[in-house]
Design a protein around this nucleic acid. Structure first.
Length: 282
DNA sequence: CCCCAGGAGAGTC
DNA sequence: GACTCTCATGGG
């Protein structure tokens, strides 16, 4: 089979590989040559940039054009956010200027963020990588081996003990339960007609998915930018830098969505990336 | 030993 | 509805 690799070229100003990958929305990427290999489902691309452009080399050009949200005008989005005249947020816009919100597969996103709870990003990456290595399909791109994200059917046949051996801890039962539900006909794709709040309500019915993870799934898996996931970093930035008064994470999320509406997801990512990059300890 | 990490479920009131 | 405790696991 012949895999033609094409190159997509895009202005670098609003598309920075590092900012887009390190802002916490995605876990399957690794350094490669002058950039990164980015993997989604069973697809892969080589992402890198020079002084002026960011390049995507892949044999799935249409998939990654959509994945990297190349039809959205991030300059216009930043302009709208600036109208709120919040000094700290505006600083974060400059810091994370090259962030783009990825349009990821909803099933992969759901499994990934179930694993993410009460966990750190390094361990999350390792856990997901281990899932793919053990239960995904081995593939090859530019001489590099990589693994597809496992099907939920495959994941439904793994034992809870084997998940624990991968280091998934108490999340093992969540993963197994969710995989079985999908195998039994629970269809995440069919929920796309729901509003964002209806979606969150449905998602939180799943054992192991709470408000925060549900907001990540609606934002990154369903492209609902009227979502505002509140994790430890956002709770911290809300209190310390936005001087918010709420202390309950669910209330914080509702307040921020009520304020930023369809811009919520963008604001969330700019804030998360800025706060974490300037204060993280590793 | 402590605390923390992109939290959520179960129990209590 | 709210608060609180516990849940694996690795790292600082």
């Amino acid at each position: 089979m012949l895999n033609n690799i094409n190159t997509i070229k895009f202005k670098k100003e609003f598309f920075c590989p590092t900012a887009t990958l390190d802002c916490g929305q995605v876990f399957r990427y690794k350094s490669f040559k002058d950039g990164y290999l980015v993997i989604s489902q069973n697809k892969i691309c080589y992402l890198y940039s020079d002084n002026e452009y960011t390049y995507i080399e892949t044999s799935d050009t249409e998939y990654f054009k959509k994945y990297f949200d190349l039809d959205t005008d991030y300059n216009a989005i930043q302009t709208k956010i600036k109208d709120f005249n919040n000094e700290f947020i505006n600083t974060s816009l400059g810091f994370g200027k090259g962030i783009r919100i990825l349009k990821q597969d909803v099933v992969e996103t759901a499994f990934s963020f179930i694993i993410s709870q009460n966990n750190n990003i390094k361990r999350i990456k390792n856990s997901i990588e281990n899932l793919c290595k053990n239960y995904g399909e081995k593939l090859c791109f530019m001489g590099e081996e990589y693994y597809s994200f496992p099907t939920f059917k495959r994941l439904s046949t793994v034992s809870e003990e084997d998940y624990k051996k991968l280091g998934l801890g108490y999340r093992s039962s969540y993963i197994l339960n969710f995989a079985k539900a999908l195998t039994n006909g629970f269809d995440l794709y069919s929920l796309n007609s729901l509003t964002t709040s209806e979606l969150i309500k449905e998602l939180t019915k799943i054992y192991g998915i709470g408000k925060k993870v549900a907001n990540c799934i609606t934002l990154f898996g369903y492209s609902r930018t009227d979502s505002f996931p509140v994790d430890t970093w956002i709770a911290k930035v809300y209190k310390q830098n936005l001087f918010g008064k709420e202390s309950n994470e669910d209330k914080i999320s509702l307040e921020l969505v009520n304020t930023y509406k369809d811009l919520s997801g963008y604001v969330q990512q700019y804030l998360f990336y800025y706060k974490r990059e300037t204060e993280k300890k590793f």
